[in-house]
Computed example of a mutant assay.
Amino acid sequence: MSVNTMDFTILIPAFLAGLLVLSTHVPLGIQVLSRGIVFIDLAIAQIATLGVIAADSAGFEPEGWIAQAAAVSAALLGAVLLTWTEKRWPEVLEALIGVLFVLAASAGMLLVANNPHGGEHLQELLSGQILWVNYQQLIPVGLLSAAILTIHRWRGQKLGRLGFYGLFAFAVTASVQLVGVYLVFASLIIPALASRNYLPRIRLCVAYGVGMIAYTLGLIISAKVDLPSGPLVVWSLAAMGIVANVLSPTRSPAV
């Protein structure tokens, strides 16, 4: 597919899905970076993915409401567990988040081991199928994103551990269903990193700008060269993060 012949009716829903993911993940990512719990997104996203895989292994449709309920329940359970571990062992929280991610990923691989299509489904959940997003999928995610942004703006730092992790679980669960684990993590962390040297009053705008440009470039390049969109958007995010860092008032050696 070339740029001249690409179907913009496919790219527009994909771009809107990216905007919805960025709408919640940019402010949450800045807060995650300030809390020093960078890998929380990967862990909760992987736990939500495990919920979908478990529902699929039990014979339920991955897109059905039971699978969605399983994903949310798993993510919330992970949020409760992270809240408890942060209270109990705050000095090794990041390491425990990493262990939780590995356990959830390994459990998912075990569940799909005897499924002839399990590997393909697992790959879709990890790298995402953003080009297959439709407008019907965007409506509930849009409503959830609006609710998350309202709560985050209203409560912010006053959410507490459980409140923050719970809010995070809902945001990540919805996003994983749209764009996959890798792109969810990149959307959370890279804009936050790229904008960290900017003044507080413009940091959020810079982070959103990095994300929006990256999604635009990644989707267009994907359509032009006929390569998977998710990985290309991840690389576009990294490239735009480097550019934003180079242009920042106080440069640092890495994104």
Rank of each mutant, 00 (worst) to 15 (best):
L143I: 15
L143D: 11
L143C: 09
L144I: 07
A146H: 06
A146Y: 06
A146W: 07
A146L: 13
A147V: 13
A147T: 05
A147K: 04
I148A: 08
L149C: 12
L149M: 13
L149G: 02
T150C: 12
T150S: 10
I151K: 08
I151N: 01
I151T: 13
I151A: 14
I151P: 03
H152V: 11
H152K: 10
H152D: 11
R153C: 12
W154A: 14
W154V: 11
W154T: 14
R155D: 04
R155N: 05
R155K: 12
R155I: 13
G156K: 01
G156M: 03
Q157N: 08
K158S: 09
K158F: 07
L159K: 03
G160D: 06
G160S: 07
R161G: 09
L162N: 03
L162F: 14
G163T: 03
G163E: 00
Y165F: 15
G166Q: 05
G166S: 15
G166V: 11
G166C: 10
G166P: 12
L167A: 03
L167E: 07
L167G: 09
L167D: 08
F168E: 03
F168P: 09
F168A: 03
F168Y: 14
F168G: 05
A169I: 08
A169N: 08
A169M: 06
F170M: 09
F170K: 07
F170V: 12
A171S: 15
A171P: 15
V172I: 15
V172S: 05
V172Y: 05
V172W: 03
T173C: 14
S175K: 03
V176K: 00
V176P: 00
V176I: 12
Q177C: 01
Q177S: 09
L178P: 04
V179H: 00
V179W: 00
G180Y: 03
G180I: 06
V181D: 01
V181P: 01
Y182F: 15
Y182L: 15
Y182G: 08
L183D: 01
L183F: 05
V184K: 00
F185E: 01
F185V: 03
F185A: 02
F185P: 01
A186H: 01
A186P: 01
A186F: 06
S187I: 02
S187K: 00
S187T: 02
I190T: 04
I190Y: 01
P191G: 13
P191K: 05
A192S: 13
A192Y: 05
A192E: 06
L193T: 10
A194E: 13
A194M: 13
S195G: 10
S195R: 04
S195I: 12
S195V: 09
R196K: 08
N197S: 15
N197M: 14
N197Q: 15
Y198T: 08
Y198F: 15
Y198S: 10
P200T: 05
R201W: 12
R201M: 10
I202W: 14
I202H: 14
R203C: 11
R203Y: 09
R203L: 11
L204T: 00
C205R: 08
C205N: 07
C205L: 13
V206T: 15
V206P: 10
V206F: 13
V206N: 10
A207T: 09
A207E: 06
A207Y: 08
Y208D: 05
Y208N: 04
Y208C: 06
Y208V: 04
Y208L: 09
